[in-house]
Computed example of a mutant assay.
Amino acid sequence: MPRGRPRQFDEGAALDAALRLFWRHGYEGTSISTLAQAMGLTVASVYNAFGNKESLFMKAVGHYDRYSASLYEEAFAMTSAREVARGILMGEVDLVSGDATPEGCLMIQGALATGPESEAVQKAMASLRRQAEADVAARFAQVQQAGGLPPGWSAKALAGYVMTVATGMAVQAKSGASRQELIDVVDMAMRIWPEDQRG
Rank of each mutant, 00 (worst) to 15 (best):
G12P: 07
A13R: 15
G26D: 08
E119W: 02
A69N: 08
E73D: 15
A146R: 15
L106E: 03
S80M: 02
Q197S: 09
L41V: 01
M90Q: 11
E103P: 03
D135L: 14
E11Q: 15
L149V: 09
L112M: 07
T30E: 02
F50D: 13
A60D: 09
P194Y: 06
S118M: 05
A141N: 12
V121R: 02
E195K: 09
G104L: 03
Y27N: 15
G62I: 09
G160P: 07
S178H: 09
R82T: 01
L21D: 03
V171A: 15
A138H: 00
S33E: 14
A100L: 08
M163Q: 12
S55K: 08
R66Q: 13
H63M: 04
L15T: 00
A189C: 08
A166H: 09
Q131G: 10
A13F: 03
G104F: 00
R198K: 04
S175K: 13
G29F: 00
N52I: 03
Q172V: 01
A81M: 03
S178T: 15
L35H: 10
T30C: 06
Q142N: 13
M107S: 07
L95D: 07
E11H: 11
T114M: 06
E133A: 10
Y47S: 10
G110D: 13
V185M: 08
A124R: 11
Y64C: 05
K59S: 10
T101S: 05
R3S: 11
A44R: 14
I192Y: 10
S33D: 10
E54R: 10
K53R: 15
I32A: 11
A36E: 09
L106A: 03
L149Y: 06
R82G: 13
R82S: 08
L56P: 04
Q145K: 14
E83M: 03
E195Y: 06
G98R: 08
K174G: 10
A132R: 14
P116A: 01
E103L: 08
Q145H: 10
V171K: 13
G40M: 14
L112Y: 06
G98V: 04
G115F: 11
R130W: 03
A77G: 14
L112I: 09
A157L: 14
Q144M: 04
V43L: 10
G168S: 09
A18S: 02
C105I: 01
G62K: 15
A157H: 07
F22P: 05
Q172P: 00
R24Y: 05
R20L: 07
L56S: 04
I183P: 06
M58T: 02
P116S: 04
T30I: 07
D16T: 05
G40S: 14
A69T: 01
E73P: 00
Q109F: 00
D10C: 03
